[in-house]
Amino acid sequence: MKLNSIGLDADKAEQISSDLNVLLANFQRYYQNLRGIHWNIKGKRFFDLHIKFEELYNDANMKVDMIAERVLTLGGVPFHTFEDYNDNSTVPVGKNVTKDEDAIHLIVDSLKELLLIERKILNTSDEAQDEGTNSMMSDFISEQEKTVWMMKAWLAEDI
Rank of each mutant, 00 (worst) to 15 (best):
Q144H: 15
I121M: 09
Q129R: 06
A103T: 02
K12G: 03
Y85P: 00
L116A: 12
V93G: 01
E69Y: 10
H80F: 04
L74A: 07
T98K: 11
K42Y: 06
D84H: 15
G43T: 08
L114K: 06
L155E: 03
H38A: 01
E101C: 00
T73S: 08
G43K: 09
V22D: 03
D11A: 14
P92G: 06
S5A: 10
H80S: 10
T147E: 14
G75D: 00
S110E: 03
K52S: 08
V91K: 02
N26Q: 11
K146N: 14
S142A: 12
Q144W: 13
P92W: 07
A156N: 11
I16A: 02
L8D: 02
M62Q: 06
N33G: 02
K112T: 15
D59C: 05
A68D: 06
G43N: 11
A13E: 01
E83R: 13
Y31W: 09
I121C: 06
E101V: 04
W154L: 09
D11G: 10
E143I: 13
V64E: 06
I51G: 00
T73L: 11
E14S: 07
T81Q: 02
Q129N: 12
N96A: 14
L114P: 01
N58W: 07
E118N: 08
G75R: 02
L24K: 05
N134D: 03
E113T: 14
M137Y: 02
Q32F: 05
K146H: 15
I67G: 01
I159M: 10
D65Y: 06
I16C: 03
G76Q: 04
A10Q: 11
A68I: 14
E55H: 08
I37P: 01
I121D: 01
D65L: 04
N4V: 06
D9N: 15
S142W: 06
F27H: 13
K146R: 15
L20F: 09
A60K: 04
S135M: 13
T90I: 11
K63Y: 04
E14K: 15
D19T: 13
L24S: 03
K152Y: 08
N58K: 09
L114W: 02
N86Q: 12
G132L: 12
G43A: 07
K52R: 12
T81P: 05
W39A: 01
L116C: 09
A10C: 02
A10F: 01
G94E: 00
N33R: 00
E131W: 07
Y30N: 09
I117Q: 04
S18G: 06
